[in-house]
Design a protein around this nucleic acid. Structure first.
Length: 366
DNA sequence: TGAGGAATAT
DNA sequence: GATATTCCTC
């Protein structure tokens, strides 16, 4: 990278050109812009004769480090676009790709929507994990919960469809479970499906939602209180979870999945209730988990989910935690979307998630 | 009505 | 293949 003096001019020009290009996307490439600018300055100083070592170093380092050392950091920031929008509602997130040109127009409105929406999407996290930056936002969680907005059902019915992508918007915040399309006709008739489909078409099907860590924690916590997955019923769980907008079906589904997983890996089965803590294999080591999730959950959630880990906590720490993990044994998790962490893992699957959080297990009841 | 489970969709 | 939603049955 370091050009020889004779090449500096060209190099600077090249850098300037680069900068011009970057300037086109100041929002997207703020750092690049800065880096290039610094590089240019450095080169200039070089040219001028005052060779400030730091410049060279800085320059080269910048470019290199950014890619190397901070690489990972960037990865975490990849979602930046989206997050950026969260932090400062000045940016458009989802729309950015296809709507850059038009976003200006929508900005105002969409911003509002977004902010509202963002506020409400804590438990449900259709989007990937938040990062550290968001940590402080846990407060949101609280609010959300309070309002019952914890659960973001995601509705995409007719109305929301309008904007195409995102708009889960606004309305969804607190309640409105998306689901119940309800059987107006209910029925038993063979036509149920057809009629529905005909009426709404595919809109009918709820969009899939992923259970966020928070949500799952609540789930586990409820499970624990109810004596485990086997004895708990969806309705009870839902009630204990106290998540607005959460439907029985959703809980049931999650429970079903949870049970399946536990069966597959019986190891951890005693959740909630229990007792003996099973050991599970983590890598080559056997670990004694809190109790499958329940545990951690309990604590945390216990009374104060609020504080907790907010989404971020969940993920961020995760990365940090060395541990545990592994869940591999248990399940593969999956959750959703891509997560920045390389670490593998974890998280969310019913099983793992909790394991993540560690311990302490005061099981208590509300 | 609700639960459990299977089928289906994503 | 995993996970979520919907359907079916009890």
């Amino acid at each position: 990278m370091l050009p020889r003096k004779m090449g500096f001019r060209d190099y600077i020009e090249a850098l300037e050109e680069e900068r011009r290009k970057i300037q086109v996307f100041p929002k997207e490439l703020p750092l690049s812009l800065e880096l290039v600018t610094q590089a240019i300055e450095g080169c200039r100083q070089q040219l001028s004769g005052t060779v400030a070592d730091y410049n060279l170093n800085g320059q080269s380092e910048c470019s290199e480090q950014t890619s190397m050392d901070e690489g990972p950091a960037f990865e975490e920031f990849i979602p930046i676009k989206k997050r950026a929008s969260q932090d400062s509602v000045e940016e458009e997130d989802d729309e950015d790709e296809d709507e850059q040109h038009s976003h200006q127009l929508k900005k105002t409105t969409s911003d509002k929507k977004k902010s509202d929406w963002l506020r409400s999407v804590q438990l449900w996290n259709p989007n990937p994990p938040p990062t550290k930056e968001d940590v402080p936002r846990k407060t949101n969680v609280v609010e959300v919960k309070r309002n019952g907005g914890a659960f973001q059902p995601f509705q995409r019915d007719e109305k929301s469809v309008v904007n195409g992508k995102a708009n889960n918007g606004a309305s969804a915040i607190g309640k409105a479970p998306s689901s119940p399309p309800v059987p107006a006709t209910s029925s038993t008739g063979p036509m149920r499906i057809d009629s529905k489909k005909e009426e709404k078409g595919q809109a009918q099907r709820k969009q899939r939602r992923c259970w966020s860590q928070e949500l799952h924690k609540r789930f586990l916590h409820a499970l624990q209180q109810l004596g485990g997955a086997d004895s708990a019923t969806p309705k009870q769980i839902r009630e204990l979870m106290k998540v607005d907008g959460l439907t029985n079906d959703e809980v049931k589904s999650h429970l079903q999945k949870f049970r399946l997983h536990t069966r597959r890996s019986p190891i951890m089965h005693n959740n909630g209730s229990s007792q003996a803590a099973p050991l599970f294999l983590v890598g080559n080591i056997f670990v004694q988990p809190p109790e499958y999730g329940a545990v951690a959950t309990s604590t945390a959630s216990g009374g104060e989910l609020t504080t907790v880990s907010a989404p971020t906590g969940i993920y961020a720490p995760v990365a940090a935690h060395p541990p545990p993990v592994t869940h591999a044994t248990i399940m593969k998790h999956s959750h959703s979307q891509e997560r920045p962490n390389n670490h593998s893992v974890h998280s969310d699957s019913p099983a793992s998630s909790s394991s993540t959080h560690t311990i302490t297990a005061p099981s208590h009841a509300p």
